[in-house]
Write a protein that binds this DNA or RNA. Structure first.
Length: 223
DNA sequence: CCAGACGTTGTT
DNA sequence: GTCTGG
DNA sequence: CCAGACGTTGTT
DNA sequence: GTCTGG
């Protein structure tokens, strides 16, 4: 699955890689947690352009009475998003690319949990397949998103049952429907992912520093 | 019909 | 143990 | 996902 | 809002 991730790449570089223009700057994030807001890419309404929008992690459906509903929907199963009432509208009309350059998984070994940091060899940024929704409450309006998961492939299966769907760059246009078209979930490109154990994450979510990534071993343990 | 959930993961 | 907040 | 709380009454 | 369970 995907319960924490990083966005360390400078905004300027993200803008280049994802073909965005005139985006706002943002600080690197080393430990993004659910309910926090991060920059996400979606199709600008009524145009063919991509835009960067800050969204809260955890999809809040339109019918929610309050924000708390979103905390339970940080992931959506690829197998069922087309049918689930909570996700189907967003799946048909409101997809997004969640910018990241790594994410965390926890592997239980005995009574302890070992966090692993997964990333590409060159720390290259990538995009999770996401869905977004706009919720309007009595006093505020919030745009939120969820990250799609699927069954882990053989290479990552040793670590986890589920993995986030990563959209290959060539599928970005397909995933962000600019013409109303709907495509299937793109196949992830996780084969190059490296998983390395980290000593721990920071205790407090708000302590959003590089300290949370401290490899124990430099070798990747995928093989 | 109304009331209550609407989600995922992991662990037992 | 289970729920809430981040 | 993890970390931290998890309760009430009355008094300052 | 819409679906499920009773």
């Amino acid at each position: 699955m995907c319960g924490r991730f990083t966005v360390k790449t400078p905004a300027i570089k993200v803008g280049e890689l994802f073909d965005l223009s005139g985006i706002d700057d943002f600080e690197p994030r080393y430990n993004v947690a659910p309910t926090q807001s991060v920059p996400v890419i979606r199709r600008e309404e009524g145009t063919t352009k991509r835009e960067l929008v800050w969204m809260r992690w955890g999809l809040i459906p339109r019918w929610a009475k309050d924000l708390s509903v979103g905390a339970k929907a940080i992931n959506a199963r690829a197998e069922t998003i087309a049918e689930k009432p909570m996700f189907r509208d967003a799946y048909a009309k409101r997809r997004c690319l969640v910018i990241a350059d790594g994410y965390y998984e926890w592997k239980a070994s005995g009574k302890k949990k070992q966090p692993y940091y997964l990333h590409f060899p060159d720390a290259r940024p990538f995009a999770f397949a996401g869905l977004w929704e706009r919720w309007t409450g009595p006093t505020e309006s919030v745009t939120s998103f969820t990250i799609i998961t699927t069954a882990a492939t053989g290479k990552l299966a040793w670590l986890h049952e589920r993995m986030p769907v990563i959209v290959p760059p060539e599928h970005y246009p397909l995933w962000l429907p600019g013409n109303g078209g709907v495509s299937d979930i793109p196949v992830g490109i996780n084969d190059d992912l490296i998983a390395e154990p980290v000593s721990s994450l920071v205790n407090k979510v708000s302590n959003d520093t590089a300290e949370c990534i401290r490899p124990i071993e430099s070798n990747n343990l995928l093989d």
